[in-house]
Design a protein around this nucleic acid. Structure first.
Lengths: 113, 113
DNA sequence: TTCTTATGTACTCATATGAGTATATAAGAA
DNA sequence: TTCTTATATACTCATATGAGTACATAAGAA
C-alpha cells in the first residue's frame, strides 16, 4: 500500500515527474537533465537521489558522467507512467522536455564550457 | 500539469486513496466511510473537503446524511483509479474496505446509537 | 422552541517537504 | 601531483501537510 502512496508522492512533484517522464524515453546524465529542464543541478541531483533511494531509477557511471535510467519493477507503476505518456499532448511542459530530449547531447557539450 | 501533480498528491495520502477507491465503488455518506475505514470523523470530513475542493467528489444531502459521490472529469484520473482497482488484490487494506463497503448500511445504524 | 445527530471547521502542533546556497567528492586531464 | 569538471550532499529556511481535539453548524425530531 505504501509502495503505491509513496509512488504517487514521487509523481506529485513537478520536477520529479518531468525527470521520470524524460527517463521513460531515454537514459540521460545529470547535466542533460539540467539542460533539458532548465533546473539547477543540485535540485536535479536531489530529486534523482530520491528516485534512486526509492528504486525507481538506476545510476551508472560512463566516463565522467553519471547516467540515470528508469528501473520500474512494479507493473502498476510502469503502466501509470505509460498512461501519462499517452496523454503527453495535454502536458506541454512534458512534451517540450521530450522534444529537447531528442538532442540531449548538446547539453553535455554546453556543460563543458 | 498541476492538475496532474495535484491529483497525485491527493493519491499520496493513504486515507484519501482509501476514500476515493471506496467512492469508486459506491456512493457513501460520511459515517459509512468512517465505519468502513475506522478513521475518526473529523479526519474523514477534512479529506472529503479537500476532495470536494478539487472537484473529485460531489456531495449531496439525503435526509440527515450527506452522501459523497465520485465525480472525476479527467479521463487520465479516472483511468488511474481504474488501474488501481484492477490490482486491488495487491492492496489488502483497499480490498477489505471494499468488502465492508458492501454492507455499508450497518455503519449508518451503528451511527444512530 | 429545544434537543439530537451528522457533519464541518478552527486551532494547535509536530513533521515533512522543497528550494537555494555553499561546499564536498570523485574521476579524469594535465 | 594538481586542476577541472560532473555530481552529490549539508545546511538553512519557509512553507505545506496531516493529526487530534474542541467546537460550530445545520437539519430533523420532539
Amino acid at each position: 500500500m505504501h509502495e503505491l502512496t509513496d509512488f504517487f508522492k514521487v509523481l506529485s512533484d513537478e520536477t520529479r515527474l518531468r525527470i521520470l517522464i524524460l527517463l521513460y524515453h531515454r537514459k540521460l546524465c545529470v547535466c542533460e537533465i539540467c539542460g533539458i529542464t532548465g533546473e539547477p543541478q543540485p535540485k536535479v541531483s536531489k530529486h534523482l537521489a530520491k528516485l534512486r533511494d526509492m528504486g525507481l531509477v538506476k545510476d551508472e557511471r560512463q566516463e565522467q558522467f553519471i547516467f540515470y535510467d528508469l528501473h520500474v519493477g512494479e507493473r502498476v507503476h510502469k503502466e501509470i507512467l505509460e498512461r501519462i505518456v499517452r496523454s503527453i499532448d495535454d502536458y506541454p511542459l512534458l512534451k517540450s522536455d521530450i522534444e529537447r530530449c531528442k538532442h540531449a547531447e548538446k547539453y553535455i557539450e554546453a556543460c563543458r564550457k
